[in-house]
């Protein structure tokens, strides 16, 4: 009996894996391959001058040649992004906890936070450079501004999503506001926090790069400006691909951290232990 159950389980796992590969992996791979092939065809044809639209092969070559330089610049950009993101996370925690604890503060600040999000970061970046100079500070500040919002809103929604009956239960057990927050609201908001963080890590890289366009001595944004000024379009493309690669890896890292931190989410929902 037990053995047959096990076989069924392995079969379903194998089936699921196969289903995942055919359903989720193969279609986007085909789409990307078609896109690259079309691109290669276009750049080889008369339609597009090859200096404006370099072929994928050229871009890959540029990518390999520039690899050491890219890494150097990436170090600067990542440092700005991480410092900014860290400050953004801490700040969003502080602000959202205060807003959750104090209703008038929530009502006062929530619209303000939403409105600040309608200001494009590319528009404030020059101002920050004017105010704070060409150093690392304006870059970090821009990253903080762009990463704060998704996390803060995620946390606030998460706090609100906490089960009111669970809060009542803890109250009936004599738990004060702090304990109720730690045991109910904080864990309930974790999923929301990670959704916000996934967006914010991507924003943090974009924010740092945009800010570097406006000046500085190193960083992927600075490098981008340089290759653009020398009309090296193949190198432009290789930086763009490199940046999106970094963002993707960081998002993947967030997913892995979430998986580690929230073990109850990954357990099967199947009902066991029936007596």
């Amino acid at each position: 009996m037990k053995k047959s159950q096990n076989t069924i389980r392995t079969n379903t796992t194998a089936y699921k894996t196969l289903h995942f590969i055919t359903g989720k992996i193969i279609p986007p791979v085909i789409a990307i391959a078609v896109f690259i092939a079309f691109w290669q065809y276009l750049s080889g044809s008369e339609l597009m001058p090859s200096f404006m639209m370099p072929s994928p092969a050229k871009v890959i070559k540029a990518f390999i040649n520039d690899w050491p330089v890219l890494l150097q610049h990436a170090a600067t950009t990542l440092r700005e992004a991480f410092i900014g993101l860290a400050i953004g996370i801490v700040l969003s925690f502080i602000v959202s906890i205060l807003m959750d604890a104090c209703r008038p503060l929530y009502n006062a600040l929530y619209p303000v936070i939403v409105v600040t999000q309608t200001i494009p970061s590319i528009a404030i970046a020059p101002l920050l450079t004017l105010w704070l100079g060409y150093g690392i500070t304006p870059k970090i500040v821009l990253v903080v501004i762009t990463t704060f919002f998704p996390i803060a809103v995620g946390l606030l929604d998460g706090f609100k999503a906490a089960d009111p009956d669970a809060l009542k239960l803890l109250k009936s057990m004599g738990a004060g506001p702090v304990k109720r927050f730690i045991h109910i609201k904080l864990p309930y908001s974790l999923g929301y926090f990670f959704s916000g963080l996934k967006i914010s890590v991507a924003y943090s890289i974009v924010g740092a790069v945009i800010s570097e366009w406006l000046g500085g001595s190193s960083g992927l944004g600075v490098f981008m400006t340089r290759v653009r000024k020398s009309f090296a379009y193949d190198r432009m493309f290789s930086v763009i691909i490199f940046i999106s690669g970094i963002s993707l890896l960081l998002m993947l890292a967030v997913i892995i951290i979430k998986w580690l931190v929230m073990p109850w989410e990954r357990r099967s929902k199947s009902v066991t232990g029936n007596k």
């Binding site: 109850w264 357990r267 009902v271 066991t272 232990g273 029936n274």
Partner: peptide
Amino acid sequence: KYPNQLSGGM
């Protein structure tokens, strides 16, 4: 175990 792994009675 986590609660979602248990039946209603448990």
